[in-house]
Design a protein around this nucleic acid. Structure first.
Lengths: 127, 127
DNA sequence: GGTTGACCTGGAGTGCACTCCAGCTCCTAC
DNA sequence: GTAGGAGCTGGAGTGCACTCCAGGTCAACC
């Protein structure tokens, strides 16, 4: 199964421009081309793109994703290094979640405060 | 209690440049000045700064923080609108956490995969 | 054979949130 | 009285990750 760039964009959630951009900066290998010179993405290409979007979503900088891509390119010998990268990234994602969670607590507190103000206000009116 | 810009930076976790930048774009009110024309931040200034950093950390764009700051400036009458903003922001933070969590699951899976490869490799050697 | 629509290229432009800089003023300590 | 350090201003520069554009090609349909 192969996909046009438009289909690849739709399935990966990236824009067409971003797909070409990722190729340009060496984050994805240039996909095959059809007889007319158009990109045709394979299922493998697609799953790599999907994985990349996960890394992006979790805030991995492009620079690091490129490093990962280069290691991947060098084959099984770099598996340890790649695992290490994912390991460290996992830690940073966990930290990020914890950080968001703690800010969320502050937000809850603040919202509760507004609710209290509202409550007081209503009491003031009905009193 | 008042604080120099350096102290305010340290306590808020923002840089000195960022403090001046926030003031310039109207995110924080210009603090008082001492006899020499230097900024002196009050405890209130500080707690606003700290709250702002929470909003930033949770990904609220500056544009929206500025809107919030302007509402705040208009006093109690805008409390409802502000609460609404925090409400919506809270929802987006929760979504973000869920998104990170689901990407984390993918990451776990991938790491487990690498571990399996390693395991196979070691078996191959010792066999 | 002409029009349409998807795709191509290289390169320029955008938005965001800072960050840095030159050249200045002030206060303090020696 | 002068050297040093913190702070001041307006404005320019940076890094990131796209996003857009002009001008062109190609295949298909009418």
């Amino acid at each position: 199964m192969t996909y046009s760039i438009a289909q690849a964009a739709e399935r990966s959630g990236l824009s067409i421009d971003t797909l070409r951009y990722y190729e340009r900066i060496g984050l994805v290998d240039p996909p095959a081309r059809d007889s007319g010179g158009r990109r045709t993405y394979s299922d493998d290409d697609l799953s790599w793109l999907v994985f990349l979007t996960r890394l992006r979503t979790t805030g991995m900088p492009i620079r690091m994703m490129r490093e990962y891509a280069q290691l991947r390119h060098r084959g099984a010998a770099t598996a340890g290094r790649r695992k290490q990268m994912l390991f460290e990234h996992r830690a940073s994602v966990r930290e990020r979640i914890a950080e968001l969670q703690s800010c969320l607590d502050v937000l809850e507190y603040k919202i509760a405060h507004y609710e209290q103000i509202e409550h007081t206000f209503v009491e003031g009116i009905t009193a």
